[in-house]
């Protein structure tokens, strides 16, 4: 390990300047639950580590336009204890809560899960289903991007050199909307998703689905937003026939790998099953809202 410099700046501007002026490879440290492990395993060897946990803009959750802005360094445990976020977007909070153990929850972050760019990241399908965006700061100022545009392939992101995710924004949930996230793992805890599904749907007064977003994780190089799966729900009362179409669309969208956690065939089939179960939870939540 060659990491020779550690900095914990107090502002986003300072963090951006540190990254822009870095000689050699620099990495941003949010929770560190991926980065420090990668360093220990020899998979990453940054010359500079920029710790963002001392930047107040990045460690707070604030109400904004009916939704919430979540700082990039807000931990899973903090999010889980935020009653307002949890009641509006239970699926996002549940997805985040699935990551790691109690001690990992105390440190890990949504933005870190996003920027680690694992195809199996639990929070990402839930964030895509909720149509979340992020604010990115870099040498050329700030820009907005959709959460779904960040990961480009396993371990790779669309962030340019020196860019850093400052915060994530989740819009207001529709009054009669509901979201959910479920994953399949062979154990009950502490595992990596074999398939993960995020569903967010809205009903009208007659119980007809008027809008839906369905996102799949761990079945392709990046999390997918599956329009055909959403179309299977929109305009229906989310009855059995709609659920069958949803499951078929989810399975059809899969482009998974074979690995020790699941074969292509298994993942493809299970994606449909989990999509169905997730949609049922989102539906129940939308009905009770």
């Amino acid at each position: 390990m060659n990491t020779s410099q550690y900095e914990a700046p107090g502002s986003v501007d300072e963090a951006v300047a540190l990254l822009a002026n870095a000689k050699g490879n620099a990495r941003v440290l949010a929770g560190g639950t991926d980065l420090l492990v990668q360093i220990r395993m020899g998979m990453a060897d940054p010359a500079l580590i920029v710790d963002i946990k001392k930047i107040s803009e990045m460690t707070t959750v604030t109400a904004e336009n009916g939704g919430f802005r979540i700082g990039a360094a807000v931990s899973g445990a903090e999010l889980n204890e935020n009653a307002a976020v949890k009641s509006m977007w239970p699926g996002i909070v549940e997805a985040m809560d699935l990551i790691g153990s109690t001690q990992i929850q105390g440190r890990c972050t949504l933005a870190g899960n996003l920027c680690n760019a694992s195809p199996a990241a639990d929070s990402v399908p839930a964030m895509i289903a909720a149509d979340m965006t992020c604010t990115i700061a870099g040498p050329n100022g700030r820009r907005e991007a959709s959460v779904g545009s960040i990961a480009t392939s396993p371990g790779k992101t669309s962030l340019a050199d020196g860019e850093i995710v400052v915060s994530l924004f989740v819009p207001a949930q529709n009054a009669t909307g509901g979201d959910a996230y479920l994953r399949f793992i062979p154990r009950t805890e502490m595992d990596i998703a074999v398939v993960g599904v995020g569903v967010n749907l809205t009903l009208d007064g007659n119980g007809v689905c008027t809008a839906a977003r369905v996102s799949l994780g761990a079945v392709a190089p990046t999390a997918l937003l599956v329009d055909d799966a959403a179309k299977a729900l929109i305009g229906t009362k989310v009855d059995d026939a709609a659920m069958d179409n949803l499951a078929a669309a989810a399975s059809a969208a899969c482009n998974p790998i074979n690995d020790k956690r699941g074969t292509i065939e298994f993942r493809t089939k299970v994606a449909g099953v989990i999509a169905r179960r997730t949609a049922a939870i989102a539906l129940e939540r939308a009905r009770s809202n």
Binding site: Y6, A8, L29, G31, G32, T33, L36, V37, R40, I49, D51, K53, T102, Q103, I104, G106, R107
Partner: peptide
Amino acid sequence: CVVHIDGTSVKSCTTLAVQ
């Protein structure tokens, strides 16, 4: 490697000493 940092349990391999 769990230790308590400011009263909360943390895996001490998930944290740099400087943090």
